[in-house]
Amino acid sequence: MNFHLRLWRQKSADTPGRFEGIEATNITPDCSFLEMLDIVNNRLITDGKEPIAFESDCREGICGTCSLVINGVPQGPGRGAACQVYMRKFKDGETIFVEPFRAGSFPILKDLVVNRSAYERIMRAGGFISEHTGGAPDASAILIPKPVADKAMDAAACIGCGACAAACPNSSAMLFVGAKVTHLNLLPQGQPEAKKRARAMVRAMDEEGFGNCSNYYACEAVCPASVSASVIAKLNRDYIKGEVSEAVGAID
């Protein structure tokens, strides 16, 4: 198969970028999208040109390193991350636009590589349960009904890739923050810090300059881990509880 790639090239964070047309010829349909880019890169290197910088690691859809937007869709067509996209999903001779995640809070570092450290800072503000290693009670001491554990797991499946903010017309990070807060706030272990957590993480998210949620649900549509936007509803609820209890001087 042959493809006309329109790839975003950008030398560094401070230089302006542009699209460059590159031909990907003679690609087998069983090849993954990233493998197609590998082939293109190795050909560029052989021709003495600079390869396209893009990030990937596990290539099985779980590490969340991928940050490609294929034809306007973060993480590409279909469920799963960009590494799970196979060339047989495209038409022979198709023009494919490949861009980096675009969001003000994810500045582009080079070509298709973006800086997602904003998510790290949100996590550090409250994405954890404070506890002491070695001080934990026996695991069987905490009973958690299966439906609760399952719901927490649904949210915990988030791979932290940033596709939600990249897909959002407002660049809102609410699905990510919602997933983190929902995972921990649903569990009994997370209760002592539940309100504080929601409050701290939303404040950190706002500080990073992400946009606001307009309930478009584009995030949910692209989420490689199929996290439901209902986590955003829970975040909205827990955040207000947190702010109100702080405002009125209630504990937590």
């Binding site: 349960i129 569990l187 272990q189």
Partner: peptide
């Protein structure tokens, strides 16, 4: 024990 208390589901 440790993982459960961290919230591993």
């Amino acid at each position: 024990d440790e993982c459960v208390s961290q919230g591993v589901p």
